[in-house]
Amino acid sequence: MILKRVCSFLSSTRLFACCCLITLIFAQSATAASVDIYRNFKELRSNTVENVDYEIETTVTDSDVIVIAIHGGKIEKGTTELAYALSSHNNYNYYSYTGLKSKGNSTLHITSEKFDEPTASEMVSKSKTTLSIHGCSGSEEFTYIGGLDTELGNKIKESLTKYGFTVLDPPKNMAGISPNNIANKNMSGRGVQLEISKGLRTQFLSSNNDKLKSYVLAISEAVNSIQ
């Protein structure tokens, strides 16, 4: 009887272990499936329709600063709106790659290191200062600041903090320190990447957009202090 109980326990343990292993495999597969569908913009353009699935918005000024939202529109909501507000307030150059699909806009995502849309690449290459606006998950209101332009990044951090915003050090995968990151492909070889939580971006899109105005003022103050 004791032997039967032991065997039964071992069988249950093996079954539990197998279930855990299967769950882990599926979790890893789900993670792997979340990577970008397209390796570059040429590949994306061959499989989508401009002005139906996405559109490209630009404003060209005589500024040496550019604000870009390469995951704009419905891809990372609120990033286009912030980039446009910031550029309009300061007469900066502006670029947004904007998702327009009724659903599934995440399929339009191309990571910063591989984002090579020609107009964006040309505009960034002619600019001395680049602000790349992104969205990240998180219901709380915070900003990760990354990029190779640590001098400007630190000034932006100080200014945002002064205006009452929370700034955190970015996780490694959002640090924006790769030379291949489009934010760092300007004339100086270093830009600033801002990852803004969903919670804060939701506030930007609310009918009372005081937070958006304050955020724009904070960043403007930092950028213009070094111009």
Rank of each mutant, 00 (worst) to 15 (best):
N180V: 12
E43L: 02
F41Y: 15
L24W: 09
I226V: 14
Y95W: 00
K128D: 11
K114A: 15
G147R: 02
S102R: 05
L194Y: 04
K198Q: 13
S106P: 01
A69D: 08
S88M: 13
S96Q: 12
T129H: 03
K211E: 06
S12I: 01
N51R: 14
C19M: 08
Y215T: 01
N40D: 12
I196V: 03
K157Q: 11
R14C: 07
C19L: 09
K128P: 04
S225A: 12
S159C: 01
A218V: 00
L205G: 03
V223S: 09
T80I: 10
S11G: 11
D64S: 11
S88A: 14
G73N: 03
V65P: 05
S8M: 09
S106Y: 05
L194C: 08
L200W: 01
T79Y: 01
V124K: 01
F142I: 15
T150F: 15
V49T: 09
L212I: 03
E81M: 06
I110C: 09
S206Q: 09
Q227Y: 05
I56L: 10
P179G: 10
N209T: 04
I156W: 06
T61V: 14
S214M: 07
N209Q: 09
V67I: 02
V60Q: 11
N93M: 05
N91R: 10
D53Y: 13
E151M: 02
E76H: 07
K198P: 10
K77Y: 15
N180F: 01
T48P: 07
Y84I: 05
G164H: 01
T98K: 15
N93G: 08
V67F: 01
T79N: 01
G189F: 01
I68M: 06
N224M: 06
M1I: 04
L108T: 03
G73F: 15
T111N: 12
I133E: 02
L148I: 09
G199C: 15
T59F: 03
Q28H: 14
V65H: 07
G189N: 05
G72E: 11
T130Q: 05
V216W: 09
Y144F: 14
N105L: 13
S197N: 12
L152E: 03
F9Y: 07
P179F: 00
L86Q: 03
K213F: 03
L168H: 13
S206P: 12
T23I: 08
C19E: 08
F41M: 12
E141K: 15
N154F: 11
S29Q: 09
D149E: 04
N208Q: 06
L212H: 02
M1L: 07
S87A: 03
S121F: 14
A69G: 02
K128T: 08
